[in-house]
Design a protein around this nucleic acid. Structure first.
Length: 581
RNA sequence: CGGGGCGUAGCGCAGUCUGGUUUAGCGCGCUUGCCUUGGGAGCAAGAGGUCGGUGGUUCAAAUCCACUCGCCCCGACCA
């Protein structure tokens, strides 16, 4: 491709509304154009990268035995009503009506549609397992789209859905997809980790996210520094706590705590550490109030609570609800004498000499012994956020370290959540009807491109890993008024094309500085320039984008040398640079 | 959805508080010519704007008022 004939325009100024580096560089390099909040055009150069990522995804999924199809983006409401998500999904589902006033939506994900297809087409255990995928534009009406392609409303996603006769086979496929994802992201040249994750409103019970490690990432990850365990902070298992305080007396005592409502106020007033206070939080869990107890220096993790109580909607009670449930203003709730179900975090197990609210204004109880005084706790669970530096509960040797990550893929074990609601059943060997067991698996294609830039750039621009670079070679003709420069460039361009090399030929009549700056900005892995200087040195100048120095290659060796460089660049990324060990 | 900010040429901005000497400017980019050629050169001449929209106040509105649409940031939310 010749730049003079291409759609190619770069910008010197950093766009003021772009916060993260991938967004800034994509705009400066003319790779995306915004048309509305979170909705972008993929310009020609970036589209080549998107297509390459898609190709890697297709190759690995096909190899793993998945089958590609393509479902519609415009979806009728019926299937969503059937699954219950027409109401549950909320405002993120973009809804509209057709000319007959029938309800439709833009597909944010396709569990309903694929389940409908499979239940019509597949009736026998002999038809299973099957794994179907598509690469398609999705739409989710995000409250706050941001960071360019990282969190758009419209985005390209690969989504796959698998159907099985039994749990064991579904878990085998889960592992199969997990391994395919590992290969995909390694081939894209990314440093990433697979972490255990919450299942959100897709549903299901088991999930891993593939997180590209980058400080600009929106997700927080805790990972053991000794073993393989890594988890989204929403899911990270808390380590057990030993509370070894002595009892103060043989019963708890009432204390006056005028207007001391927060953990900070109460602990400062009573002169104790936050680890001696028990927070009592009133939650509404699917319309039913519950009290959750956690030590004052920890926070309740709502994702864990949702999972344990299998509740769909969980929220903190509002002030009025707290008052009617506890009989006291907010800030003085406590477990003693409280008349709702009480559950506690493991962190308060065995705690003695503790402080709790008294369910009366301006009053707390102190010298509380959990075992002795809080017999009304129904059960202890891990319902708090784990913290950095905590001992890893799995290997018990390492400690948690904190990373930030960009979620580029997620795998879910769904079970029968959709198949039972939508009657996706098969006839088993013994003639009995059973719901299919499902899994689903997503990859954000555009987000993967953005994540690759977050990890691979310098102060001058993008440094694409060869497997997903828009072109393999960037050819620069420096000095278009010199006949030999132009002649040699034109010839080399043609020879490279004949060899099947993807080459972007910058044939513009620009000064060297402009050509070099643009080349660095768009980040093609191999730069080849021909100029008066290089000709005087008897060849072309070659430079790898990811390395500092250039070198001269004699004209008669140029083609073989470039071929070798391309091969070795692919090899450099082939083994991959990321993943859990 | 709560809080804050911003809409002026393709992009980045000044002008708005204090309405009128502004024919609405500046930088980048774009067009033409000269010149220059190893890290975003220089000179000269140009093209390009219903000042987000609607309504109002006024002799007069980019500027004041009301409504409205859009965009960005923080938070809540989110495969």
């Amino acid at each position: 491709m010749k730049v003079s004939k291409y759609l190619f325009h770069t910008y010197k100024e950093i766009p003021s509304d772009a916060q993260v580096i991938s967004h800034q560089l994509m705009i400066r390099a003319g790779m995306i154009k915004k048309i509305a909040a979170g909705i972008y055009t993929y310009m020609p150069i970036l589209l080549r990268t998107i297509r390459k990522i898609e190709r890697i995804v297709r190759e690995e999924l096909n190899r793993a035995g998945a089958i590609e199809l393509l479902m519609p983006m415009v979806l009728p409401a019926e299937l969503w009503i059937e699954s219950g998500r027409w109401n549950y999904y909320g405002v993120e589902l973009l809804r509209f009506k057709d000319r007959k006033n029938a309800d439709f939506c833009l597909g944010p994900t396709h569990e309903e549609i694929i389940t409908d297809i499979v239940r019509q087409e597949l009736k026998s255990y002999k038809d299973l397992p099957i794994n179907l995928y598509q690469i398609q534009t999705k739409f989710r009406d995000e409250a706050r789209p941001r960071f360019g392609l990282m969190r758009g409303r419209e985005f390209i996603m690969k989504d796959a859905y698998s159907f099985h006769t039994d749990e064991e086979d579904a878990k085998r496929e889960y592992k199969n997809m997990y391994d395919a994802y590992t290969r995909i992201f390694k081939r894209c040249g990314l440093r990433f980790r697979a972490v255990s994750a919450a299942t959100g409103n897709i549903g299901g019970t088991l999930s891993h996210e593939f997180q590209v490690l980058a400080e600009s990432g929106e997700d927080e990850i805790l990972a053991c520094n000794k073993c393989d365990y890594a988890a989204n902070v929403e899911m990270a298992i808390s380590s057990s706590i030993i509370n070894n305080y002595e009892d103060k007396g043989d019963r708890f005592i009432e204390v006056n705590t005028p207007n001391r409502k927060t953990v900070e106020d109460v602990t400062a007033f009573l002169g104790i550490g936050a680890n001696r206070l028990i927070k009592t939080l009133i939650y509404i869990c699917d319309n039913k109030p519950v009290a959750l107890l956690v030590r004052g220096d920890y926070d309740v993790n709502e994702a864990k609570v949702k999972a344990i109580f299998k509740c769909e909607e969980l929220r903190l009670a509002n002030d009025a609800e707290v008052e009617s449930i506890t009989g006291s203003p907010v800030g003085f709730a406590g477990p003693i004498g409280l008349n709702v179900d009480i559950y506690a975090d493991n962190s308060i197990q065995g705690l003695k000499g503790a402080v709790v609210g008294a369910n009366r204004a301006d009053t707390h109880f102190k010298d509380v012994n959990v075992e002795r005084d809080l017999k009304n706790i129904k059960a202890f669970y891990d319902i708090r956020f784990a913290k950095v530096g905590e001992r890893c509960p799995l290997c018990n040797r390492g400690v948690y370290e904190r990373y930030r990550g960009i979620e580029v893929g997620q795998v879910f074990y769904l079970g029968t959540k959709y198949s039972s609601k939508m009657k996706a059943e098969f006839l088993d060997r013994d003639g009995s009807k059973k719901p299919m067991i499902m899994g689903c698996y997503g990859i954000g294609i555009g987000r993967t491109a953005a994540a690759a830039i977050e990890q691979n750039h310098d102060e001058n621009g993008i440094i694409w890993p060869m497997p997903i670079a828009p072109f393999e070679v960037h050819l620069l003709g420096i000095g278009t008024d010199i006949e030999e420069v132009v002649r040699r460039c034109d010839l080399l361009y043609k020879e490279l094309l004949d060899l099947g090399v993807e080459v972007l030929y910058d044939d513009r009549d620009e000064r060297p500085g402009v050509l070099f700056k643009d080349a660095d900005l768009i980040g093609i892995p191999i730069r080849v320039s021909i100029s008066k200087k290089s000709i005087e040195k008897g060849g072309v100048e070659v430079k790898l984008r990811r390395e500092k120095n250039s070198f001269i290659v004699p004209f008669d060796k140029v083609l073989s040398e470039i071929k070798n460089l391309i091969d070795s660049e692919y090899k450099f990324y082939k083994g991959g640079v990321g993943g859990n060990k």
